[in-house]
């Protein structure tokens, strides 16, 4: 994506809409065209997926794929900024598409309204340039990690719980989620947002970081969070970094991998299928 863009020249309307980007030397008209040409997949249209999709749409990312099979629930509205009160009961991908189109009608939205699983992940993930993870469960996180690795796609990862956030970027060949956490916790060991709560503005913070990471990868500028895990303690507003290394013993991306194709992630995570879905 750092190569010259192939798309058409910017229209006068696009030059005006994206003028705050174009005026920046780090973006310029060439960078804006890269954004317009980019295809990004957002896994989950929930707490993280909402700000990610919204900022990427506003930035002019040409095609946004959104994976979610859920419907908008009233408990989502405290933080999921893609969905409005009037959308309660509506399918999330439809609600997301309507909101995003209202913000930027130019953006092409590809709705994937089904649970991502081992049977369909490799049909979807290779079609995008960058994958952004906003999944809410371990099974989907390992699935997306493995599929992004097999498809050689950058994975921009984020997670949230209570007042804590984590964000990192996995670039192909530079470590993966399994290098960081080789195994998922047993079911019930680590609570979900539904079980323990999450402060509403936290996904906005972590999701904005994921949007910035995605934009930088598209533009080929700056330094990503690759090889670094950003830890956010929003209660004390402390940001800490720890190192992420490619583990030579990683079963996926290590020197002698034993995971060479997608597996059954519900079994791997020890959860019933209905809990192992994007939502």
């Amino acid at each position: 994506m750092t190569t010259a863009t192939k798309g058409p020249a910017l229209t006068p309307a696009q030059v005006r809409r994206y003028s705050r980007h174009i005026i920046m030397p780090q973006v310029g008209s060439v960078g804006q065209r890269k954004l317009l040409d980019a295809r990004v997949l957002v896994v989950g249209a929930g707490g993280l997926g909402s700000p990610v999709a919204l900022y990427l749409a506003l930035a002019g990312v040409g095609t946004l794929g959104i994976v979610d099979f859920d419907v908008v629930d009233v408990t989502n509205l405290q933080r999921q900024i893609l969905h409005k009160d009037s959308a309660v009961g509506k399918r999330k991908v439809i609600s997301a598409m309507e909101t995003l189109k209202e913000h930027n009608p130019e953006v092409n939205i590809e709705a994937h309204e089904y649970p991502l699983n081992s049977d369909n992940a490799m049909d979807v993930i290779p079609k995008y340039d960058i994958i952004v993870n906003g999944a809410d469960n371990f099974a989907t996180r390992y699935l997306v990690n493995d599929a992004a690795y097999f498809a050689k796609k950058p994975l921009v990862d984020g997670s949230i719980l209570i007042f804590d956030g984590q964000a990192t970027t996995y670039l192909p060949g530079k470590g993966c989620y399994r290098c960081l956490f080789p195994e998922p916790p047993p079911p019930g060991e680590v609570p979900s947002c539904a079980e323990a709560g999450v402060i509403g503005a936290l996904p906005g913070l972590v999701g904005s970081i994921q949007s910035l990471e995605t934009i930088k990868i598209i533009l080929g500028i700056g330094e990503t969070l690759s090889s670094r895990l950003l830890l956010i303690n929003a209660l004390n507003m402390e940001f800490t970094e720890v190192k992420v290394r490619r583990n030579p013993k990683c079963v996926l991306c290590g020197d002698k991998p034993s995971v060479t194709r997608l597996i059954d992630y519900e079994v791997f995570c020890g959860v019933a299928p209905e809990r192992a879905l994007v939502g």
Binding site: D136, D164, Q166, S192, V198
Partner: peptide, 11 residues
């Protein structure tokens, strides 16, 4: 010393 657990929340 930092203790960092895996967190899956994104919803």
């Amino acid at each position: 010393v930092s203790i960092v657990p895996a967190v899956a929340g994104g919803e």
